[in-house]
Design a protein around this nucleic acid. Structure first.
Lengths: 335, 335
DNA sequence: CTGAAAGCGCTTACAG
DNA sequence: CTGAAAGCGCTTACAG
């Protein structure tokens, strides 16, 4: 299967292999008739250029690396779908690097090692997905010799192209909306572990609260259900807020479950809003109101931007920092 | 970053590039002292062989293709984690091919096209994940010239190595267990769309029911929550079973939600059991009892088997068909 | 045990 | 517009 070489095509077409190669890479340089004939034969023979040879000869592998943290979170999986769809359209293949951040040896050396592997693998560009970027990461990034697009990855340094959601604004907006609806006691529930994404949400929330002259209250709990349940129980002992805004769907559902056990009626006594809009939101009871963050689209747009960078087809002045719009999906956990 | 060539290493070590190559690929052929010296220099220089060149010269790319259907289902994401971890250990890189089965043009031609791309990409082996394998798929598979491991993919043809879960036995076992506990009216809820995996579960269920002289009842509904809710409502109009075994977690949760609205108490009046054990199971109320299918392990074992095949390190008589053990996680939806 | 040399399948200046 | 030829960075028989 697929042992057909460029020589075979050239032979069948009665031309040199150089011409076949040109049909593939610079079709405009080939006489239309010749091109048509060769294209026909390519199709008939099912010829596909050997990617290793192509990559070696041209240092263009038409392959992009996707560097992701563990795929456990559904957001990453959905993002890859967007990336893959766009890659197919644009004619790129994907290499997958799972950046195992939780592993014992998750040091800056292992990150450097990872990038070494990425570069040696001969990709033309990289989609980099990472919740937590430090200055050390930035230093490594700046040494990378191919195009990189930060995908849903917060980064203070504006020199790296990025596609993301404006989480700070999203949190600000939803907080303000709930304030406008007459709620005063609004909590923000976030993870103990510092994620830059979640920090942004907290910032947006705090800003809206302060603007309204309200006291922000941030509750930090574990992302794991087993661990956050006791924390929620403890927090609800001394009363509950009018509204809880939670940085993740699953954590919001877990919070809702605890509240209901404590006989707090949702949404009448307390409203709950999550971020992300996974299937949890639809399956939980009451159905969870969410900030819908279009993860698929982030992947798609990031791949598109990367392709434009690699092929240098960027429009003059095109912005290298894209924010994908989000929206609120109102369900039964709010009134 | 990483422009160091094998020539540079050879130069620094005062040997020919052939020797450096040997250190990398056949270290036993190099005198220990020479080898140590070269290895030291490789490390110092951070040399990594160019994969395209290596792939071209040796037709070994130390890369494996992972062919998956859309990643939306959490099972696939988790499986890839297992694959990635094993791949790292074994020194393989990953190429990702998302087989978009839902797309308009999901014909057998597009499948052939996909395999053409996979082969041309120069991988050493393939992990193939697909719920629905037809004879036409098998025909394509048999033409593939590299090792392929069917990963959690049911296939009647035993000539292809595979790693999976014995879903039929799992369904049989749980059905029998519930019968032994004194339940008589047991339903099986599956998808309308034919998935071979789900067919196996139905088969196992039916076998257990027939053995016990009980009447099997299979309800087919959509996998999508919006669509299966009315079907569930309809089905529950004329009464409910003692036990419902559902082929997917999310569908089980959806069913539970409908039942509760109809004032059927779970687990007292009706027990519900799902397959898969995703986070839904833990977050839904009541918490869902599940057949836990260790998806991570499937990925890990599949990659391990594929590596053994590629490197021909299989033990004599080692089985090419591995079944991963499953277990039941008893929670609040059963009594 | 080590080196010189051919070759992997392509691309791309360079001539023509 | 097309072909002959060099070269991409590596591997691997083949000599020695």
């Amino acid at each position: 299967m697929n042992q057909i070489k460029i020589y075979d095509v050239a032979g069948a077409a009665g031309v040199s292999l150089a011409t076949v190669s040109r049909v593939l890479n610079h079709p405009e340089k080939v006489r239309p008739e010749t091109r048509a004939k060769i294209e026909k034969i390519i199709k008939e023979l099912g010829y596909k250029p050997n990617l290793n040879a192509k990559g070696l000869a041209s240092s263009k592998s038409t392959t992009v690396a996707v560097v992701v943290p563990e795929l456990t979170r559904s957001s990453v999986a959905e993002m890859i779908n967007g990336i893959a769809d766009c890659a197919r359209k644009r004619g790129y293949l994907l290499r997958l690097f799972v950046n195992n951040l939780n592993r014992e040896a998750a040091t800056i050396e292992s990150e450097r090692e990872l990038w070494g592997d990425v570069m040696a693998s001969g990709v033309d560009g990289v989609l980099y997905i990472n919740d937590e970027i430090t200055d050390e990461h930035l230093e490594i990034l700046s040494e990378v010799s191919v195009d990189v697009v930060l995908t849903n990855t917060v980064c203070k340094e504006p020199s790296f192209p990025s596609v993301a959601i404006d989480y700070k604004k999203a949190a600000y907006d939803i907080t303000k909306e709930m304030i406008n609806r007459g709620n005063k006691k609004i909590w923000m529930i976030t993870t103990i572990r510092k994620y830059m994404v979640n920090d942004l949400k907290v910032e947006g929330y705090q800003e809206a609260m302060k603007e309204a002259g309200l006291e922000p209250y941030v509750l930090q709990v574990s992302g794991k259900t087993e661990l956050n349940v006791p924390a929620y129980e403890e927090a609800l002992k001394d009363g509950h807020p009018d509204v809880a805004i939670v940085v993740r769907d699953s954590m919001a559902v877990s919070f809702t479950n605890v509240a209901r056990l404590a006989h707090i009626h949702i949404p009448d006594e307390m409203q709950v809003i999550g971020f992300q809009n996974t299937r949890y939101a639809e399956l939980s009871r009451p159905k969870l109101t969410c900030i819908n963050t279009p993860i698929y689209e982030i992947g798609e747009k990031a791949m598109d931007l990367l392709t434009n960078l690699m092929e240098q087809t960027l429009e003059e002045g095109e912005d290298l920092h894209e924010f994908i719009p989000y929206e609120v999906v109102w369900r039964d956990s709010t009134k």
